[in-house]
Design a protein around this nucleic acid. Structure first.
Length: 527
RNA sequence: GGGCCGGUAGCUCAACGGUUAGAGCCGACCGCUCAUAACGGUCUGGUUGGGGGUUCGAUUCCCUCCCGGCCUACCA
């Protein structure tokens, strides 16, 4: 039998320094939706996430909290695991960078790059501010007292030199540019591709890839004084997930990854450093770097000092998981920054989910339950109107695929909900409730048509609102093994006479809490 | 300073250089009653950031200015 095509997709690995926030949740939800979409479309999907658990900051945070770095890492990893469950967006595979197998993978790729001649030992030097724990370029410095130099923020800097291994990134500029050129959609959206191309064209410097001032990291092969500096370690998690360096591992068939889904802040690392490392190590490059934007609370960046930090767990439990997923994926054009607020979420959820879809299901299925003995009606001859709405529903798989090809999740949802809106128009203009006495067979045809539209809509909605879509599929009598995109279309239409379970609400309306209640709106409570 | 995005209805967004710039939400009114006070219909609402230019014709292409966001290497 022919193997299903593979599809490997990853989120970035969160730094294990703090709790999950809304940005992590958004990325996980979006990646999960894409993964589910591909899986329902027949691909053998490998959905990977991980935890970035090394580095100086981990040591410092752990020390401040009186725990070991490993304990801190364990705690945070558990929180992210919990987040995956809370969002119904569990990954297939989690790589933690403190795992022994990840040490093996990181050291293996390091060794490959070294054998290639791309790693060399030198002095890393620069103006360092002890207070800020950061290096500054000569051009950024400001004059201090007595001819001393200060950082841009006014703290004293000193010239320090540290032994470090370097990666010969400077040798890869042309090859990277050639790759961007030959693979126009290697970085999407274009906006970020343009930035990266401009950056590379200015010329690349070699990259410092080891540190000696802390030891919470992967040891450099053959030189234990050094630990790998964050990016070699962190990026390699994608390889670890696929079994590297064992190229006979069962999961190695998933490499190269089809998509690394990342936030716009780490575009450079994924689209310059990572491909260069892989080229050096003689490994295949991921097919696409898919960049998403940030979410803002009422236009403001989320921050503790503004007091507008929203916990993703709170959001999910307050509005509902599917509701939260739907809102983020529908309201925010994927790739751009977006906003969330209590009003916007309530509007979206009530208008699209409760009113348009939920109510359509409820009104049509309850008519079937009451008037058709709980069985799917046997449709008579189809009118033009019936055929038109059915054709739209049956075309949804293709239309959604077209949108998802460019990771336009919001467009895919737009296509689906356009059919829902038209189905409401269809239902209203056909007036099945008025046909009971005059033409019961016609009523049956209308109700069957509506149920069949719902079936197709529900199949296509599964990646985005998995629980509710599954419920709806139950209600229209869809067998559990007939819910893939391949089952969208006339060939798998609802059989007349099929017993249906009877209607049940899919999406409750969100009703505002009473005035003065302390709970209220978690997303943007400020008025 | 250099570069990249974007600026369209109150809000979120659409419009291969081509009829009177569209859609959803919000709002107002009407209708319907099967349904989750849901659904349908109608309407209100835009000098497409400003100014030039190219063109028979510009939201779309060019120039310029204004405004917003982002990138401009070692932050995990």
């Amino acid at each position: 039998m022919a193997a299903r095509p593979t599809f490997c997709i990853s989120t970035a690995i969160p730094y294990a320094n703090g709790r999950p926030h809304i940005g992590h949740a958004y990325e996980r939800i979006a990646t999960d939706a894409i993964a589910r979409f591909q899986r329902l479309d027949g691909r053998d999907v490998f959905f990977v996430t991980g935890m970035d658990e090394h580095g100086l900051k981990m040591q410092q945070t752990a020390a401040r909290e009186g725990v070991t770095p490993q304990e801190l890492a364990d705690r945070t990893a558990a929180q992210f695991l919990e987040m995956g469950d809370a969002l119904n967006a569990r990954a297939d595979h989690v790589v933690r960078t403190t795992e022994p197998r990840h040490y093996a993978a990181s050291q293996a790729i390091w060794t490959k790059m070294q054998e290639r001649g791309d790693i060399y030992l030198a002095k890393y030097s620069g103006w360092y501010s002890v207070r800020e724990e950061a290096y500054f370029d000569e051009s950024e410095l400001t004059p201090g007292h007595d001819g001393a130099k200060n950082s841009p923020n006014g703290t004293p800097v000193e010239w320090v030199e540290e032994e470090s291994y370097f990666f010969r990134l400077s040798a890869y500029g042309d090859r990277l540019l050639a790759h961007y050129d030959a693979n126009a959609d290697f970085i999407v959206p274009d906006k970020y591709r343009n930035e990266i191309v401009a950056f590379v064209k200015r010329g690349l410097q070699d990259l410092s890839i080891s540190r000696t001032n802390f030891n919470w990291g992967v040891p450099v092969p053959g030189d234990d004084k050094h630990v790998m500096y964050v990016w070699v370690d962190a990026l390699t998690n994608y390889l670890t997930a696929c079994g590297y360096p064992d190229e006979n591992a069962p999961d190695w068939r998933f490499w190269p990854a089809d998509a690394h889904v990342i936030g716009k802040d780490i575009t450079r690392f994924h689209s310059i450093y990572w491909p260069a490392f892989l080229m050096s190590a003689g490994l295949e490059l991921p097919k696409q770097i898919v960049v998403h934007g940030f979410l803002f609370n009422r236009g403001e960046k989320m921050s503790k000092s503004v007091g507008n930090v929203i916990d993703p767990f709170t959001l999910a439990s307050h509005y509902g998981v599917d509701q939260m997923r739907y809102f983020f994926l529908r309201e925010v054009p994927f790739g751009q920054d977006g906003n969330y607020s209590h009003e916007a979420i309530v509007n979206r959820v009530n208008a699209d989910l409760a009113n348009d879809l939920g109510n359509l299901a409820q009104r049509s299925l309850s008519m079937i339950a009451k008037n058709c003995e709980g069985r799917a009606p046997i449709p008579g001859a189809l009118t033009e109107a019936d055929q038109a709405i059915l054709d739209q529903a049956w075309a949804l798989a293709d239309r959604s695929r077209a949108a998802m090809k460019d990771y336009a999740l919001h467009h895919a949802l737009g296509e689906i909900w356009k059919v829902v809106a038209d189905a409401n128009r269809y239902f209203a203009s056909e007036e099945p409730w008025a046909k009971g006495k005059t033409d019961p067979e016609r009523r049956g045809t209308i109700l069957w048509t509506t149920a069949e539209v719902l079936r197709n809509v529900a199949i296509m909605a599964q990646p985005f609102i998995p629980t509710a879509a599954g419920k709806l599929l139950d209600l229209v009598g869809s067998a559990s093994d007939a819910r893939e995109f391949a089952h969208v279309g006339a060939a798998h239409k609802i059989a007349g006479g099929l017993t249906l379970p009877g209607p049940a609400p899919i999406f409750p309306r969100y009703v505002e809490a009473e005035e003065g209640a302390a709970s209220g709106s978690p997303a943007g409570a400020k008025s």
